[in-house]
């Protein structure tokens, strides 16, 4: 089924698509320079997609945590995932880089198509290591490795086989600059990453993900362990990052979702309830549950 068809037809189940899709292009003022053949919008109303989850279900043993989720991720935009605790946001996000493969008795069903190559991320034939190199992830709690600040950022580069010292140095510096932490760490690159504050560690982890130049960035509540100032910095960072990547972010903070994202998906009990432009989800939600949730009346 083409992307156009997906959006033109009423969706199955109780998923509601908010508003008409025409204004979506207008809500994204910035340019998208790297448009390739395959990722060109299939419909004039829709920006090109980076990935598309199609009928994605996920099982922990016999417990089904995701129920046939259909969710497009627009390239070079931020998509926020919101929903009450336990609704499956982390489970969904973690499907994208096959982290679930690390645990026994887990099962995927359906597809996650990654554009432009149109590979199915969760297919058995796809190498999860390759997918993880192409899709970066930032975790809820900062998780720097027991290494120096420099080596933390260089980790993904070394995994990709880059040995050249000058290239490593340049790319580490670029990544640290792009995550606005360079000034704070440039004189202590060889010190342990554990000496940094929590907020700095989280920006370091983002730099670590960014340094590997992924095609897409996953963030699972990246600010939940941080104070408002540190999370403000990370929000600024996310707005910068979307110039280069598609970003999928889980957040419990409605202000953050409305400030930092272009699209919002509301999940409830393992199902996608509503997806649309963030402004629509927050001002004009179609579903009663979404409205209750974003206005804080959910119970």
């Amino acid at each position: 089924m083409s992307v156009e068809a997906q959006f033109a037809q009423p969706r199955p189940g109780n998923t509601v698509l908010t508003g008409n899709t025409a204004p979506l292009g207008n809500t994204a003022p910035h340019q998208r320079p790297h448009m390739t053949e395959a990722s060109k919008p299939a419909s004039p109303q829709l920006p090109p997609l980076k990935a598309h989850a199609k009928k994605l279900s996920f099982f922990y043993g016999t417990h089904q945590a995701l129920h046939a989720i259909d969710l497009p991720l627009v390239d070079m935009h931020v998509t926020a995932l919101i929903g009450p605790s336990g609704c499956g946001k982390s489970t969904f996000l973690r499907c994208f880089n096959r982290i679930h493969d690390l645990y026994p008795n887990t099962r995927y069903d359906g597809e996650i198509i990654l554009y432009p190559s149109a590979a199915n991320i969760i297919s058995r034939d796809v190498d999860p290591i390759e997918m993880r190199m192409r899709i970066g992830m930032v975790f809820q709690k900062p998780n720097p490795f027991p290494k120096s600040i420099f080596e933390n950022v260089a980790y993904g580069l070394r995994l990709k086989g880059i040995r050249n010292a000058t290239e490593l140095k340049d790319r580490v510096e670029t990544a640290l600059k792009s995550t606005a932490i360079w000034e704070e760490v440039k004189n202590r690159l060889n010190k342990s990453a554990y000496d940094l504050s929590g907020g700095q560690q989280q920006r370091l982890c983002i730099a670590r993900a960014v340094a590997a130049e992924p095609e897409m960035l996953l963030m699972d509540e990246p600010c939940s362990a941080l104070d408002p100032i540190a999370s403000g910095k990370i929000e600024d960072l996310i707005r910068e990052l979307r110039k280069k990547y598609a970003v999928l972010i889980v957040t419990h903070n409605m202000q953050q979702a409305s400030r930092a994202s272009d699209y919002t998906a509301f999940m409830y009990m393992g199902k996608l309830v509503e997806f649309g432009a963030t402004t629509d989800i927050f001002t004009n939600p179609k579903s009663k549950e979404t409205e209750d949730y974003v206005t804080g009346r959910f119970g």
Partner: peptide, 10 residues
């Protein structure tokens, strides 16, 4: 979490 960080980088 640390292992996931490493596997997550590929």
């Amino acid at each position: 979490l640390l292992r996931e960080g490493s596997y997550g980088m590929g």
